[in-house]
């Protein structure tokens, strides 16, 4: 699998990174090198291997349905870049945020 500049554009959009063209060019080279190194993964025969999503054998870790006091709006909004004192605020969404 070879990485293209179009891939870089697409991935940058998915990740919401407003990269400059210079950054995209640099990343194309760096990611190609890393993916090239990683390519050895494909040589491993994994036909008999299960996937490991997390180590450990824990299952059914659940909590009882008992409410605890929330921290409240004042504490929630304390770190907000922009708020009106009750709500978090963001700018124009213009027909539902860009997708992809």
């Amino acid at each position: 699998m070879t990485l293209t500049r179009a891939d870089v554009d697409h991935v940058a959009t998915l990740a919401r990174l407003g990269l400059t063209d210079a950054e995209k060019d640099r990343l194309l080279g760096e990611l190609e090198a890393i993916l090239g190194h990683i390519a050895r993964l494909q040589q491993v025969d994994t036909s008999k291997l299960a996937a490991t999503a997390q180590v450990g054998d824990l299952v059914n870790v659940m909590r009882p349905d008992v409410p605890e006091p929330p921290i409240g709006a004042a504490a929630a909004l304390r770190n907000a870049p922009v708020s009106d004192g009750s709500y978090f605020m963001v700018g124009a969404i213009q027909g539902g945020e860009l997708d992809g």
């Binding site: 909590r63 008992v66 409410p67 605890e68 929330p70 921290i71 409240g72 709006a73 929630a76 909004l77 009750s86 709500y87 978090f88």
Partner: peptide
């Protein structure tokens, strides 16, 4: 464990 009631609480109170 926040209360699931989101209608009768002030904005962002149950967080």
């Amino acid at each position: 464990p926040c209360p699931a009631d989101y209608i009768n609480a002030g904005p962002n109170e149950n967080t």
